[in-house]
Design a protein around this nucleic acid. Structure first.
Lengths: 187, 187
DNA sequence: CCATGGTGCTACGGAACCGTAGCGGAATCG
DNA sequence: CGATTCCGCTACGGTTCCGTAGCACCATGG
């Protein structure tokens, strides 16, 4: 009841942790290194976070940006904007690395899985809305399940950029979108 | 020039390493643990492999199965068989974990990247052949690039099973294939 | 003003790995 | 048979990381 935990120190730790995570990887984001680079004492880090994992997860968590869902009145345009926003994020190798690290961790650690799913859900939300609107407008074959459409739309982009090393060009995005729209259109 | 390296010991090490990799993860596949479980001495492991990474990579490398490319005379049937073979492999959580581990490693380590790409290429080969035959038979819109088609076909399946935790049901495979065939068909 | 409690610093104990040395024993090739 | 070379064992030095202790110092609330 005398002195609150320093917000400044907390901000420094998290910023340093984030930098380490996207540059040299989540496994190399160690408490010692964060302490060394941030200038915050190791002991202080442990007053803010229970353990090393909590630090890393909090750092990742605060990196998640919530993007607004576009509404242009056309499925093609909405998807185009969503995919281009996706591209802007994942085109950086650092984010691709973070994704891979996080996926690998999430597979085994339930706590990291929650964080991973949060990042996924953030990606999914605008997409789900766009497809739902497309369905409502009759742009999507009503036979097609929403979840199915979600995977189908994401598929080519994540396959190209996350599973493979390839980068996603603007031209490619248009080609994929054409194919997707063609497949989803009512018969 | 007197006594060759024991093939038996080598087989034991690799088998143990493989088991560790798919059960508790590539990071937990340590030289000490392989030595302990296999009964092969640690020093012997270092006579067969330069370092811990070479052991792990060799173990993974020898897990890669080369599957034959089907040829049923129809793109739909060929893709169906390929995807179902894919499903049989990746439906096991152990393989999904291995994939995630390998991807994360491949992102930073060029040596692991080679191994990762080898596993990818093994997956790609039958797929590429099937699509090429589909193009030759006129089942695919000639405007569509082969590589584009590859990503497009893989997309939904890897998005569902590798990026997300979901499992791939037989029914889902058919739905995805319907959409894919519809999109790729000549106009 | 003064006690409470955060901060920084250094150091430590413990654990997990890595890769190597040194040794007796056993298998293999010439 | 005999030299060579692998094998298994134990032990070690080195590194990295975790999480905590002890201490002096300083900011804040009552």
């Amino acid at each position: 009841m005398a002195r609150p935990l320093s917000e400044e120190a907390r901000a420094k730790m998290l910023a340093t942790a984030q930098e380490l995570i996207v540059t040299i990887g989540i496994d190399s984001c160690t408490v010692d290194e964060v302490a060394r680079r941030s200038g915050v004492a190791k002991t202080t880090i442990y007053r803010h976070f229970a353990d090393a994992d909590e630090l890393a997860m909090t750092a990742i968590d605060s990196m998640i940006e919530h993007v607004a869902a576009p509404d242009h009145g056309s499925l093609r345009d909405d998807l185009s904007e969503i995919v281009r926003a996706f591209r802007r994020v994942v085109q950086h190798d650092a984010f691709r690395q973070l994704f891979a690290d996080l996926l690998a961790r999430a597979v085994r650690d339930p706590e990291f899985k929650k964080v991973y799913e949060a990042t996924q859900e953030m990606r999914h939300q605008p997409l789900r809305l766009a497809i739902q609107r497309g369905i409502a407008r009759g742009e999507v074959d009503p036979e097609i399940d929403l979840e199915t459409a979600m995977y189908f739309v994401q598929g080519p982009f994540v396959a190209k950029r996350l599973i493979e090393t390839g980068d996603l060009t603007e031209a490619e995005i248009d080609v994929f979108l054409d194919l997707i729209i063609r497949a989803l259109a009512p018969r």
